[in-house]
Design a protein around this nucleic acid. Structure first.
Lengths: 338, 338
DNA sequence: TTGTAAGCGTTATCAA
DNA sequence: TTGATAACGCTTACAA
């Protein structure tokens, strides 16, 4: 790799001059020199050394994508379409903006903090953070930081976040179920914290507001992996006739569960209705087509990155919690009793 | 961020000594000093500056993941499960090995070359490269480099690659179709180069070896995006009764096409059989369950990274083209005429 | 308009 | 066993 210094020697000017024309500081150098330098620049195909640039400028040109999780793929049978789409969209945005993307996934928050610190990343998109971890990260990492799907309580700090109308989506979907005449519904999630709990709250509230008894909505734990889902469904099967509808925390789960149910001779939606959340591509590919709540991961990525750019370019940019809208996708997996 | 220099001043030793104990070069420093330094190291939570380390060592500690493509998500309705799983598996391997992962996707090979050069990445995993681009990359990038799913002709150079028994998979699946009594089959791909062409070759060869006429196997172009697939299927529909089976280049395509066909009143496999390739999770979730050729992206990632590590750690490690095995997944989407 | 030189935070060579 | 000091490739005051 040829360096600026060598280049300067070749051309017969100083490194500063070469550096200036490379960076387009052309008002500090004569037209004649510019041309002389640029000519050679083309010839030798000079490629800047990012590491050196970053050390000199105390920046990094990298945007970090960190996930507080065990792995990028949450061991789900249908892979994590959400993460995949997010990363894909983000990669494009980051590259178009002239930055580079580093990915770091760990369930150890300290590892994540070490990563962002030692690489001095210019900006950070963070997923899978609960309040405590978010606070910890924010304390150490002082540069622009936006969370996706974070759900934090008010601690006097302000967080940049882009989320979804999680509560509303579940509320409206549950209402739809109730309108269809369902009176006994199960809610299934792998945990009941953060956005999952928001969705559950929406579920419960809809039931309450409809004047149905508390027991009309029952919650269950369901693992995330394909095998795990089936194990949990084994349990649920014992009481399957208690329910007329099942509300899954994600399409990923819903679709694996549907597979399981149908393999066990249960008809959907005749015997039991199922709904999901996310509107993953798979939702409209299975039969019956899955009724679900739509969100758009690409949009989430773009909005998050746009906010990050604002924060990077304007130190006065204010913290913001951006909530993206949901909509209902009514398809074929819910029985209408009316 | 505290620096080694500051640390040294605090402790009352030289930066060299501090650096030595940080890097565990403990045979060059007295036990007493080691303890003194380590004590302070803990207290101040020293975090090394990667940029500085990399500049000094002329390395980068980063493994690049580059794709010669338009975008990470190939605009397919079922997202690109393959890419997602690959990236996920790779991220984990890279991190466990103490490296960091940078992702760069571009359809401009020069951009990719610029990226790897200016970041001086220590190793590279490259996807979506044809022979010419691979050669170009290899010429400039002299460090360890392994391709995934590359398909290169012999030009005297040797490439590290991990691929699949693409030909064999298609050959065996086509044989299965023929055994089931199919005599008129369509093959549908978005292009006929690289591994796609290998699969097509397997398809044709099986037909030939079975003594069927050339026209028994016909190839079609099908776009990759969800909408594109449907557009192409619109065309195919005009001649749909000419075929008893359709072989799709990927499960992603197959599954969208099945959706389309069933929406248009065509029964699978009664009216037409369909098979895919990859055994994506979605394959066993749709109805009828999709008969397909299985591959394992996670394994691909692991094998590729393992090879990369060998190349990094041993300059004498030889170039290798590793071919992973396929297997057939016989499910429900093929009609048996016998 | 051009060039010199210090500095970014490390590593590594070589004296002390 | 320790510590100066140069070097990595670039940016950026500041001087010429």
């Amino acid at each position: 790799m040829i360096t600026i210094k060598e280049l300067a020697k070749m051309i017969g000017v100083s490194p500063t001059t070469v550096s200036n024309v490379i960076r387009g500081k052309t008002n500090e150098v004569s037209q004649q020199t510019i041309e002389k330098v640029q000519k050679v620049l083309k010839e030798v195909n000079y490629i800047p050394n990012m590491t050196a640039i970053n050390l000199a400028k105390n920046s990094s040109n990298v945007i970090g994508y960190v996930m507080n999780a065990k792995g990028i793929i949450q061991d789900n049978a249908v892979q994590d379409f959400f993460t995949g789409e997010l990363i894909g969209a983000l990669e494009m945005e980051i590259r178009k903006a002239g930055y580079y993307m580093m990915i770091y996934i760990s369930d150890d928050i300290d590892e994540i903090i070490k990563f962002v610190s030692s690489w001095n990343v210019d900006g950070l998109i963070a997923l899978g953070f609960n309040h405590d971890n978010a606070q910890k990260l924010r304390e150490v990492y002082q540069k622009p930081l936006v969370f996706i799907d974070g759900h934090f309580y008010d601690d006097g700090n302000e967080y940049n976040n882009v989320g979804l109308e999680d509560y509303k989506g579940a509320y409206e979907m549950t209402n739809y179920l109730i309108e269809c005449g369902h009176k006994r519904m199960g809610f299934l999630a792998n945990n009941y914290i953060g956005i999952n709990n928001e969705r559950y709250r929406g579920f419960k509230e809809a039931i309450k507001n409809a004047g149905l008894p508390e027991e009309a909505g029952e919650k269950f734990f369901i693992e995330k992996s394909g095998e795990g889902i089936k194990r949990c469904m084994d349990e649920l099967m014992k009481r399957i006739s208690d329910f007329s509808a099942l509300f899954f925390i994600s399409d990923n789960c819903a679709v694996v569960a549907m597979d399981y149910l149908m393999d066990n001779g249960i008809r959907i939606p005749e015997d039991i209705s199922v709904v999901g959340y996310d509107d993953a591509a798979v939702a409209s590919l299975v039969r019956p087509k899955l009724t679900t709540v739509r969100q758009n991961p690409t949009q989430k990525a773009r909005v998050a990155f746009a906010k990050l750019m604002k924060l990077i370019n304007d130190p006065n940019e204010k913290a913001e919690n951006i909530i993206l809208p949901i909509s209902l996708c009514i398809r074929q997996s819910v029985k209408n009793f009316n």
